[in-house]
Design a protein around this nucleic acid. Structure first.
Lengths: 205, 205, 205, 205
DNA sequence: GCGTAACCGAGACGGTACGTCGGGTCTTCCG
DNA sequence: CGGAAGACCCGACGTACCGTCTCGGTTACGC
């Protein structure tokens, strides 16, 4: 990934009064590399600039703070993860929890990055807003899963779609933040079944 | 709370070769005050030492890092929250989610502190372990709710108790970290009902 | 002075393959204004370009560095200060020290500009050379005062004209650089008299 | 001079709640070295910190700005330059202009440093005040030369002592700032003679 | 009379330095 | 020995300018 950025070495000047894509690439590459190598602790604007052979102002020009930069790194890896429409609500939710959340985070750098973003959002107001906006957009997409199920008659129209999505995402976040993604991967079906059908054999007193 | 620490003002020297409780109190007070006033951003060992009129080494002597200090602040407020045994699994879980998690975090400084702790745990290995341990202990207690329900015959013996607790806690964490505790307070019953009974009217295709 | 530059506002493009006088005026105006308003500290190529609505390369194209630009601002104000030939060496030197140096610097922006130029010349070789050249030329003119006195027989032919001019200019510089121009204004005659006639009543032991 | 600071290499921690002389030495050494090697241009707080293996805050703790630091470097070299009392005003002034000013600046790093200080004082108010104070103190000492001459009856009591000192110092500054110290060294006697006795053979018209 | 060369504004680029804040370590001094 | 005090090195923060570069557009001149 960064082989390209590394062999361009020492020449990446201005290309006029507009954003230089090569610089942006190099910065995102450097940010990703740093996260991969040293984790969140090794990530700082200073270090990214050094690594990318970019000036700090160039970074601050385009990303107001490190959270937004991290989110950009995140989005960069989140390449076209399409919904695999399985035709059933259960299948779709399992696919969502696996492909878009737990499995996706396990299989790439993204889990690490997302942890950092969430952590950052707890300290910084701007970061919180950026994460908020990103969450809203992602959940808006996921809600469509429920809406399709409503159209099919799998769930009643008055079902609180957002609550269901919230519960699915919540579980994934929790496991991510505790570093339990591997264990969680084995629970995916159980989680979805519980949300859809409740605790098996539950008999209220 | 900090009235005591404020009127002792300028004199709190050593009391001999043992831990000075007044200093510990003053430090915890100062930490809590800072969190209350400026949020997580205003919290630093430096600031706590200034506020508490304590030396930094005094803090480092007793708390290895800021995470542990935060956790201590948290525990200090978490005064004897007893389980209100309602006699039903639904009631107990609602009480758990409300009294021990969402409602508890909303009504005090603790939500803020816990957000900071979780954030810290994403960057720092020691912090992660401390949080891990705390989580395990708390969940161990919560699992008893399910076990009691098993004893009553409300749920079958093979029910995965930890998974249910995980889902409840997950939801609370997620809302906490997104700053949605107020909205979440109105969803408590729906969440528990969904976990126990599933989505109302769900008919698999 | 800058009324013209201000009402041309937003349109000053290229006028072909030659220097645009309007731009040069605007840049010099902006430089002068900045010096007037914020002093030397507020003067930077960046700020001049912003103020003049000019591109930085336009400035660098015509002035190799800020010192030369400052010197141009200085020369711009130094409008036709003619020697008032008083017929006596004393009168001429007083006129020189007053009209061309101390009084001139006090009464206009030029004192400020010249301070900046001298300061710049201490750091930058190019600036030093520019100042050097300017000094040589100005002193060459001033030396004529002495030469005229020689022709009149006021001073012997072997008199070191440059040394006298140096001493006069030195005094002015020193007071300028220490910000003592106002106090120095009252000493002008004493200085010239001392240089010409020595300390009154001096009797070597 | 810096051999000591260089071979202590990597160990210079805190020595408790008080100023560490070793650090101060290392910082002043580094500052002097940088000025010696690269001139004023190579002098920056950043570079001094790097060179001295000191933290920037350590420098800012003790020197509010670079001017004060430069002045400290200057004073450090200005070791006990005693007045050589020659018994005559002419001899004393020549000694002052040579030993304390022109000759002193030529023979050491101090000329360079002083140029930098003067330049700095043109841009920065704090620097100007520091230089002002230093000047006042130095001139106060120099004025004693004239006072002794008054006591001897060499000059009348009403002689403006400060003006004479000002003229001597002015000449030195001017030559320093123009980089003409070498040429000026040959003019020392002429300058003092002119100040004391005036232009030889001057006959007012 | 038309291409082209130099100018113009704009602003991004890699850098250096600024002055500040906090982290975690160390030492001294007092009680 | 405990605790305050605070200095130490370190590194990151976010900002200001530096001087260079490329752009797209605009004349005026020379072939």
């Amino acid at each position: 990934m960064n082989s390209q950025s590394e062999n361009e070495q020492l020449s990446r000047r201005s290309i006029g009064a507009r954003r230089n894509p090569a610089s942006q690439e190099a910065i995102l590459d450097a940010a990703a590399d740093l996260l991969r190598e040293n984790g969140i602790a090794g990530f700082s604007i200073e270090a990214v600039a050094r690594r990318a052979r970019a000036g700090k102002p160039t970074i601050y020009r385009w990303w107001p703070n490190r959270t937004v930069l991290m989110l950009d790194v995140y989005k960069r890896f989140k390449t076209a993860r399409t919904f695999s429409d399985t035709g059933s609500l259960r299948g779709d939710l399992i696919g969502f929890l696996d492909n878009q959340l737990i499995g996706f985070w396990r299989g790439s750098l993204c889990g690490l990055v997302y942890r950092a973003v969430i952590a950052e959002a707890q300290n910084d107001v701007g970061a919180a807003e950026a994460l908020q906006a990103y969450q809203a957009e992602r959940k808006g997409v996921a809600v469509q899963i429920i809406e399709k199920a409503k159209a099919r008659g799998e769930v009643p129209p008055q079902t609180n779609a957002m609550l269901i999505i919230d519960m699915v995402v919540s579980y994934a976040w929790h496991q991510l933040l505790l570093g339990h993604l591997d264990e969680a991967a084995g629970q995916i079906e159980s989680v979805i079944d519980t949300i859809l059908s409740g605790v098996a054999g539950y008999k209220p007193v």
